[in-house]
Every structure is written in C-alpha cells, then in structure tokens.
Design a protein around this nucleic acid. Structure first.
Length: 602
DNA sequence: CTAGGGTTAG
C-alpha cells in the first residue's frame, strides 16, 4: 500500500516545530547543565521573546534556583503579558522570596497589566505564618471584588493560605468555606487539613463524615490527624475501614507508630506494606534513629542503599535531624559519606542539617569543617554553628562567629539571638547577656519572645541574681512557661534560696495546682538546703496526689551502646566506683568555676 | 493550535 504524500509545511514552520518539541518540557527541567543546553537552543533559534517559551525559561531557572537568570529572561521580553508576570511571581514564591513576588505583582499593575486568577493562586502559596494573615485577607478582598472566586481554585487556595495563619486564620478559612456556593473535594480536604493543623480533631471529623464524596486524600488527611494526635487506635480503625490504601496511608501509619514509640508495630507494617518509596524508608530509618536504635537504623539504611534508592534533600535532612536528636553519630557519619558521593554535597539545606547533627552530637570540629566548606551559607548555617558552639560551652567562639556573620552582611534573627544569649549563659557572661537582651530589639529588630526571656532568666539565676530572675519571670509581658519556672527553681536550688522557692511554688499552686513535677523540684530544693522536715512533708503531699512523677532519665552513648540511668541509679555493677568518680569530677568543677558549682551538688 | 494553579506521608 502506498502512503499518501504529506503536504509539506514551509521550512521555517517545521524548524520552529522541531525546536518547540525539544523545548516542550523546558519548564520541568531540574538539571542546570541540561537547562544551559536548552537555553543555547532558545537563543540560537531566537525564541527568547516567544510568549510561550519565555515563561518556561523562567520556570526552569526558578526550579534550578537561578533567580538571576530568571530575572534576565524576564527583563528581555519587551511587552510582558500576564503569563510572564505569573511565571515570575511563581518563581519568586518557589525560591522563598515572597516580598519580590509582591513587588512584581505591584509592578505589573503599574504597567497596566491586570492580574488573573492564576496570579492570586501563586501569591497565596507564599503566604504562610501568622504575620501573613492581613495580606491574605487583603487578597481575599481583591479576589471577591474582581470575581475571581468564580474559579474554584482561588477560594481553595485562600482556604489553604488562611489555614497557615494560625487560629484566627483557620476561623477565617471556616467562614469562607461555609460561604462558598460550590465546593469540590479539594475544598473539603483543605478545610479538614486546616482544622487538623490547629488540633481541632472533632470538628475535622465532623466535616469528614459530612462531606458528600471522599477520595484517598480525604482518608489520608484524616488518618494523619489521628496519628499526629497520637490516637493510634482510632487511626488503626480508620486505616482498616478505608476503601483503598496507598503508599501514603501505609507510610502515615508507620510514621504514627514511630512517633508513639511503638517501633515494633511500625516495622511490622513497614514489612507488610505492598509498595514502599523513599519517604517510607526515610520515616522508618528516622524513627529508629530518633529512638536511638543504632543497629536497626544502620541496618535499614544499608538495605535502602542496596535497594538502589537515591536520597533527596528531604530524606537527608530528616534522617540527619533524627540523628541529631539522639546523638547518633555512627549513622550520621554514614549519611555524611553518602552525601559526599552525591550531588548534594554543596546543598545548603543538607549541609545545615549536617552542621546541626555534628554540633548537637558534640563533634564541633566536624561541624565547623562542614560550615567552613559550605560555599553558600545562609542564616540557618550561621545559627546552627553558633548554637552548637554555645551549647557546648564555647561561648567566646560563638560570639566571635556572631561578629563574623554580621561582617559578612547577615542580619541576625530571633534564633541567632537565642544562640547568643545561650552562649552568654553557658560561659557565665552575665553582663554581656543582659546587654544583648535589652538591645536586641533596637539593634536587630527582634522583639524578645519566651525563649529569649527563658535564656535571660536562666542567666540571671545561674549568675546568682535569683531574686531578679524571679521578678522577671513574674513581670515579663509574656506568659511564662514550665521551662521558665523550672530555671527559676533550679536557680533557687543552686543558690539555696529556700524562701524564694517557696514563693515560686505558692505562685505556681495558684496557676496550676497539684503539679507533682513542681513539688518534686521544691523537695529537691529543701533537700539541698538540708531542710529534711520540709522534704518529708512534700514527699507526703506528692503521695497524696497519687501521681508520682516518672523520673527523668539520662542517656549515655559509648561505642554505639546506649546506657540509660536515673537519679540514684544503682543498677550498674560498678555503680559505687562511678559515683566516686562523679564526686571527684564535681569537686574539681567547684574549684574551677563558681557558675558551675551548683550543678554538682548531688 | 500549544501551558501555567488547590488537598495527604519523610
């Protein structure tokens, strides 16, 4: 059979077709080298102004974190249309530059280009956090005024954005949701996830039961709500009744059991599930690492590598964070090896997680090595390093680094200042700490939060200003938390201020009566002052409450072996020798520094 | 003629 002769298009059309086909997926290009090749093609065929190609180029550069290049593409287009502006706004949001995104948004209106429904969806993606509430509600007003809420995507985006703005935002989202003329599954799902974000499980469940049609996202969202609330029995019930289970459902359950500390159940489901992906493996390994189960964590990590899975940024960061929490250096180092051999060895997010892991595990040299080798340091890198130094008593070095970061043009944020106050605290620099605290708002625009007050109160207390610490805790403009009262009580104990401790406990009794934890703190204070009558009374009170506080345990890692011990623990065979040694160390410390003296009274 | 947006697990 003879094929009909095709009618040939003019050469220039087919050439264009040819290039367009090659550039079809330009906007999905994540690899910078491939992107450079494609850009060469764009310029060679003179398509850089093409209204179809230019937004794709911007999207690609934004994916590859090349905002400079994205901006060049944008500026080269003579008459930008809505599409191009939208692409640029989306690029800024994707690269966490919401202020630039809004600048572009205002700019387009100045140029007489009207925003469309897409513009608002993109902008809303960047509004996350309490401080954005007013912006979101302003966008809401605009949206209603211009009638963009006809498009279901826009109110759905609004619900999502509102729900990230705290409790007030969720209320606004609920109001919007109630007023919607028509809702689709996504509207319902977004509203349920909003309610779960603020912990309103019952209201979320009500919507879940009410909604006309549930898809797998609805079930998985509700499932996650129960696991996050550690209601594993309800979660399991839901898991068994849901019409279909996918990887997300199984992974959610595994994650829930890990968080609840039931690693056996988690592993059972992990082994049983029909399909696993990178996220599943990450959850299970992090679960083991967080709980300090070295053999299991490393064993599974090796198995994952053997299975040929390539870790991504989130996987690296999650596992390293888990290692940091339990101080699991052995796995952390292994992950570091993998990173060195991967394309992420220069990735700032990954390196920040490494710095934090090494710093929290006490390997400050290694942390510093990663920090020094990092080409593109961000605020988080500096904060992690400063905090690491501060935590381990290198307050002077932490402060030096603080000066260096300012020299290099970084603006300290609230986290940095917690680190700085912590550095002063752990180095006994009382005066410096006080100065930093009272000038942080003026110098860095950081309004002190509870954490900062906690540092200052701890600092005052340790430095012997127990009365001042107590007064500050009582008069501070924010609600003091348990940690704050804990440090005041700790200071009372350290400096044997029994009467003051009494005052603290009386105050606490009014706020939160019958708290066994505080009573035991008070009993410790009487004990260290030798007031045994009062100790006996308190112990009796604790008994009558009938809720003996579970004693806290300390964890020690030696050669990958974990040893847990509690106060007055005599379970170890050589405990006598150990206590003798602790005593000697204590004597030694007392001679060295008056600040640490109070720490070794027991 | 052609695309681009919202919800779930680390």
């Amino acid at each position: 059979m003879q094929m009909p002769t095709p009618i040939r298009a003019p050469t220039w059309v087919s050439r264009r077709r040819h290039f367009e086909q090659k550039l079809w997926d330009l906007d999905k290009c994540k690899d910078i080298n491939q992107l450079k090749q494609m850009q060469a093609l764009v310029y060679k065929s003179n398509l850089q102004q093409d209204p179809f190609i230019a937004p794709k180029s911007i999207a690609a550069f934004s994916l590859c974190r090349q905002m400079d290049s994205a901006l060049i593409v944008f500026s080269q287009v003579r008459d930008p249309n809505v599409h191009l502006y939208n692409a640029m706004i989306r690029a800024h949001i994707y690269n966490s530059q919401p202020s630039q995104a809004f600048a572009t948004f205002f700019n387009m209106q100045c140029c007489g280009i009207f925003p469309d429904n897409f513009t608002f969806s993109f902008l809303l993606k960047g509004c996350s956090g309490k401080c954005w509430l007013s912006v979101v509600s302003m966008i809401h007003t605009h949206v209603v005024k211009w009638g963009f809420d006809e498009d279901i995507y826009v109110p759905n985006s609004l619900i999502d954005a509102y729900s990230k703005c705290g409790l007030v935002g969720v209320r606004a989202a609920a109001e919007l949701f109630r007023g919607m003329k028509e809702r689709d599954v996504v509207s319902w799902n977004s509203m349920i996830s909003a309610l779960l974000r603020v912990g309103d499980l019952s209201e979320a469940r009500k919507l879940f039961d009410e909604m006309p049609r549930r898809d797998r996202v609805s079930w998985n969202t509700m499932l996650d709500g129960y696991t996050k609330a550690e209601q594993m029995s309800v979660a399991f019930e839901l898991f068994e009744t849901m019409p279909q289970r996918d990887v997300v459902s199984w992974s959610t359950m595994v994650s829930g059991y890990c968080k609840a500390g039931d690693l056996e159940m988690a592993r059972m489901l992990f082994d049983k599930m029909p399909e696993k992906n990178l996220v599943t493996w990450t959850i299970m390994i992090s679960g083991y690492a967080e709980k300090g189960l070295v053999k299991e964590a490393i064993g599974l990590y090796i198995r994952m590598e053997e299975a040929g899975l390539r870790l991504d940024v989130a996987a690296f960061v999650s596992i390293l964070a888990a290692c940091a929490e339990s101080g699991m250096l052995s796995l952390g180092k292994r992950v570091h090896d993998t990173i060195e051999r991967s394309m992420y060895k220069c990735n700032t997010l990954v390196c920040n997680a490494l710095i934090d892991m090494y710093a929290k595990s006490g390997c400050l040299h290694k942390a510093y090595k990663v920090f020094n080798g990092l080409k593109k340091r961000d605020l988080v890198s500096w904060n992690a390093m400063i905090h690491g130094l501060a935590m381990h008593g290198h307050g002077k070095k932490a402060l030096e680094l603080f000066f260096r970061m300012k020299q290099e043009g970084f603006m300290p944020d609230k986290v940095t200042l917690v680190g700085i106050l912590c550095a002063c605290n752990h180095t006994g620099l009382v005066d410096e700490g006080i100065i930093y605290f009272y000038s942080m708002e003026k110098d860095y625009g950081v309004v002190p939060e509870v954490e900062h007050y906690g540092c200052l109160i701890d600092l005052l207390g340790r430095g012997g200003y127990v009365k001042e610490a107590f007064e500050l805790a009582r008069k501070m403009p924010l609600e003091p938390n348990v940690k704050i009262w804990g440090s005041v009580l700790g200071a009372c104990r350290m400096h044997k201020a029994v009467e003051l401790a009494d005052d603290v406990c009386n105050l606490l009794d009014k706020l939160e009566p019958k708290n066994a934890g505080k009573l035991s703190a008070l009993s410790n204070i009487y004990a260290s002052a030798g007031d045994w009558d009062n100790v006996a009374i308190i112990r009796l009170m604790m008994k009558s409450i009938g809720r003996p506080k579970q004693s806290g345990a300390s964890l020690l890692v030696l050669n990958d072996e974990y040893r847990e011990f509690t106060v007055m623990d005599k379970s170890h065979a050589k405990s006598d020798k150990i206590y003798q040694m602790v005593d000697r160390i204590g004597q030694h410390l007392k001679l060295l520094s008056p600040v640490t003296a109070g720490l070794c009274d027991e």
